[in-house]
């Protein structure tokens, strides 16, 4: 289906992370939680005000703000 920024993904859409462009603390935090290229993710839902986003990764649930999800590209299935 092609590459998509994580912010643009819809609920229940899944894919494989292709790039994490964040650096510094934010980059480190994102990677520490297992969001590295090659990881499978699935959008589990969004908060009532559409931000942050909750995703399913490696069997647990993680939340990210949209402006953090901007740094993550996903190869959507």
């Amino acid at each position: 289906m092609g590459k998509l920024s994580m912010r643009k993904m819809k609920e229940n859409q899944s894919g494989i992370i292709s790039a994490v462009k964040a650096v510094g603390e934010m980059g480190r935090r994102i990677r520490d939680m297992g969001l590295v290229p090659g990881t499978n993710i699935k959008i589990q839902g969004r908060a009532p005000l559409y931000d942050p986003v909750a995703l399913r990764v490696m069997g647990f649930t993680l939340t990210l703000r949209n402006n953090e999800a901007d740094f993550i590209d996903v190869e959507v299935k």
């Binding site: 603390e25 934010m26 935090r29 994102i30 520490d32 647990f60 939340t63 990210l64």
Partner: peptide, 12 residues
């Protein structure tokens, strides 16, 4: 200072 990243686990 920049906001601390909201990379947070939602534990079961």
């Amino acid at each position: 200072g920049p906001s601390t990243p909201f990379v947070m686990e939602l534990p079961p």
